[in-house]
Amino acid sequence: MLAPDDNLLEVENLRVSFGTERGVAKVLDGVNLTIRRGEIMGLVGESGCGKTTLARAILGILPANARHETGSLRFGGEDLLRMPRRRVDDQIRGRRITFIPQDPFASFNPLFRIGSQAREVMKWKSPRRPEHAGRGLFGFFSRYPRARRKADAADAVEMMRTVQIPRADEAFDKLPHEFSGGQRQRLMIALALMPQPDLVIADEPTTALDVTIQAQILKLLKRLVKERGVSVLFTTHDLGTAYEICDRITVMYAGQEVEMAPVDDFFQRPSHPYTVRLLESLPKPGREPREIGGEIPGLVDPPAGCRFHPRCAHATDICHMKRPATTSVSAAHDLRCYHPVGATVPA
C-alpha cells in the first residue's frame, strides 16, 4: 500500500439514492475508490451500474431527486461533502476538479460562441483568479479585469492549439455547430485543462465519437494529462479503451465496487467472477465471446449480500447474506468476493 498522502481522492463508503416512482433506488451503495496523484483511474461496469452517478457525486452535481448522500469524498485531505458549498463552488468544482462530458455535441450551448463559453470558464476558473474574488450578484456584475482577460484568452488560444484545433485563433468567434464532434471534444479537453486542475472527471468521453477519432482523442488526452501530472477518473464500459488509457481499473457492479487492480494485473489475473465474465464477453481470437447472462438487478430492491450472486456461478450460501469485505489478492489488487477465481477454495 502506498502512503495515504499519495491519494488525491479517497471515496469512502459513499451512498447515494434516488427517489423514483418505484421507490428509493440505492444507486451507489457503499462505494470505495482511491485515485492517486497523476494516475488515470478507469471505472468500468455495465450500463446502469452507477458510473455517471459516482462522477456526478464527486463533482457535486447530483440530480435534484438524489437523496441521502453519506460517506465521504476526501479530496486533497478535505471531505468535499462537508466543505461549505460556497467553497466547493468557488475553489473545487471547475477549478481543481474539472469535467469532460460524454456528449460533446450537446454539451456546448448552441447559441453562444465558443469564445464566450470559454471566457465564462476562464473568468471563474482560471488559475489567475484571486482566491477570494467576489462573484457579484448571482454571478452578474462581477469584474473580469482586462489584463487577466487578455492573459487568459492568450492561454486559451494556446491550449486550443495544443489540442490541435485548426486555426485556433479563430475558434473563439465560431459557434459550436461549426466544429466536428472530434473537434468539439478537443475543445472540451482544452477547457478541462485550462484551469490547471488536479483531477479531471471524464465520463465516457469518447462514446459519442467515431472509432477512428476515439483513438486520436484518447492518445491526446493521455499525453496531455501525463505531461501535466493531472489525475483522471475515466469511466467507460469499453474494456479495450480502459486498457489503452488507464493505470488502474475499478470495476463496479450495481452500485458497488467489486475489484480494483493495476491495469496489467487486471487483464492477466482477473479475480472477481464478474470481472472474469466481463473479460470473457470481449471478442478474442480463438474464443467465442460469451454473454454475461442474467440481468442487472433492480436498485430499488437489490439482492442482499453480494449483489452479483443471482448471476454468479460460484455463489454459495454466504454470498446471499453479507457483502464480502475487501481482501487483497496482491499488492494494490483489491477484491470483494468470497470465492475469488483462480484462488484455492478455502476449506
Binding site: 463552488d89 471547475g94 477549478r95 452578474f140
Partner: peptide, 26 residues
C-alpha cells in the same frame, strides 16, 4: 435538462449566471 447545463454546472459556473444568461436565452 440539456447537457450543456449539466456541463456548466459541472464546471462550477455560478448557477445564477447559468439560469439567467444561458438557460434563459435558449
Amino acid at each position: 435538462q440539456k447537457n450543456f447545463v449539466v456541463y456548466q454546472r459541472a464546471m462550477g459556473i455560478p448557477s445564477g449566471l447559468i439560469v439567467w444568461k444561458y438557460v434563459l436565452r435558449n
